[in-house]
Simulated scan of single mutants.
Amino acid sequence: MTTISDVARAAGVSVATVSRALRGLDRVSPQTRDRVLRAAKSLDYMPSPTASSLASGKTHVVAVVVPYVTRWYFAHLISGASQVLRDKGFHVLLLDVRDEGPNRATLLDSRMLFKRVDGVLILSLRLQQPERELLQRLQMPVVTVGVPDQDWPCVRIDDIATTSIATEHLIRLGHRRIGYVGGDSVPAMNFPTPADRAKGFRDTMGRHGLDVDPGSFVMGDWSARSGLDAGRELLSRADRPTAVVAASDELALGVMAAARELALSVPRDVSVVGIDDHELAELHGLTTIAQPVDEQGRMATRLLLSTVAGLPTGHEVATVPVTLVERRSTAAPPRP
């Protein structure tokens, strides 16, 4: 197996110079660096990640903490983050919580993080207090997505304003009897999103003097299956709503499926609007509030790598704009 000494002999330089050149450090001329890189390539030399991390104090690994790997939203956040990390020569340590019980086990510990990762990216999850204290004790760079935090930078959308845009769209079309299908919060995860989106709906209805019928306010688990169940419940009522705001596109697609089951036409009999701009939204003609999920993952990762590099980032909250995308699932309400 080729060693760093072999590369040094082939390039005619010291082992220390090879090490500096391969790690991109200063005090190596461009000509020497080029000679070292050519020698390493010709000898098929692969530097040891462990040795490099010991020498530089950096592991070039970022821990990504995510509640659910398989959900559309989180998969796209991870994809955006991975693109930036790969381009910058970093690796991903993926930590999938996946525990929906009321007392989630502590996920982060010092053995997992100390001298193993350079930073932590937390996706739409509030950490437990021992985990927060550990990260602060280790002085670990942290950036969150979706959950503003007083100690760390955050990238997010304004969930209250987002649902308000969806509700205003239906009110402008003339709807007054509007139902809501929201994603329920898992207590162990402590998501702020479900409560914020529900608040955006209630506040907007209140500003227009419109009542929110308790029977037309249904919570589910964010999935299309849950939206189907909620849609059956809402649209089977004698006083069914003429429109539905869904807290996610997957819930909205479930509501549209329930309408088809009940021989109701969308949007002639009921209008439906979602949030996200899921990749299936356009296929089904779903009006939605589009948020740039991949870009949020990229933004948060660039912010984290700036912190890892020692650049000041503060505790800023970067709020990403959203956009109403009108398709064929919304229209004026049916005439009495």
Results as ranks from 00 to 15, higher is better:
240 R>N: 01
211 D>C: 08
150 Q>P: 13
186 V>A: 09
201 F>R: 02
147 V>R: 05
206 G>A: 10
141 P>T: 03
147 V>L: 14
207 R>E: 11
129 Q>M: 12
169 H>C: 05
179 G>I: 04
224 A>Y: 02
196 D>M: 08
236 S>Q: 14
122 I>R: 00
224 A>T: 07
182 G>R: 13
215 G>P: 04
158 D>H: 11
222 W>Q: 00
240 R>T: 00
220 G>C: 05
222 W>G: 00
240 R>Y: 07
205 M>T: 09
130 P>C: 13
224 A>W: 07
234 L>P: 06
238 A>F: 10
142 V>N: 02
136 Q>D: 15
239 D>G: 09
164 S>G: 04
152 W>F: 05
211 D>T: 13
205 M>K: 01
157 I>S: 05
124 S>I: 09
153 P>C: 05
135 L>K: 15
165 I>A: 01
212 V>Q: 07
183 G>E: 03
120 V>P: 13
174 G>V: 01
161 A>C: 05
219 M>H: 12
134 L>R: 15
157 I>G: 00
235 L>C: 15
210 L>Y: 02
233 E>W: 14
208 H>T: 08
222 W>P: 05
196 D>H: 13
233 E>Q: 13
194 P>V: 07
221 D>R: 12
206 G>D: 10
169 H>P: 00
121 L>S: 09
137 R>M: 11
214 P>E: 05
173 L>T: 06
216 S>F: 14
119 G>N: 07
125 L>V: 01
225 R>T: 12
197 R>G: 03
166 A>W: 01
122 I>C: 03
176 R>W: 05
208 H>M: 10
230 A>N: 10
154 C>Y: 08
207 R>M: 10
228 L>P: 12
179 G>H: 04
217 F>D: 12
178 I>A: 01
238 A>E: 12
134 L>W: 10
230 A>W: 02
154 C>A: 09
154 C>L: 11
161 A>F: 01
214 P>T: 09
203 D>E: 06
134 L>S: 10
240 R>G: 06
160 I>H: 00
143 V>G: 05
197 R>C: 00
217 F>C: 03
145 V>L: 05
211 D>V: 06
189 M>L: 13
154 C>I: 06
159 D>P: 04
188 A>Q: 02
123 L>S: 08
246 A>M: 09
223 S>P: 01
188 A>P: 04
146 G>W: 12
206 G>N: 11
244 V>H: 00
175 H>V: 00
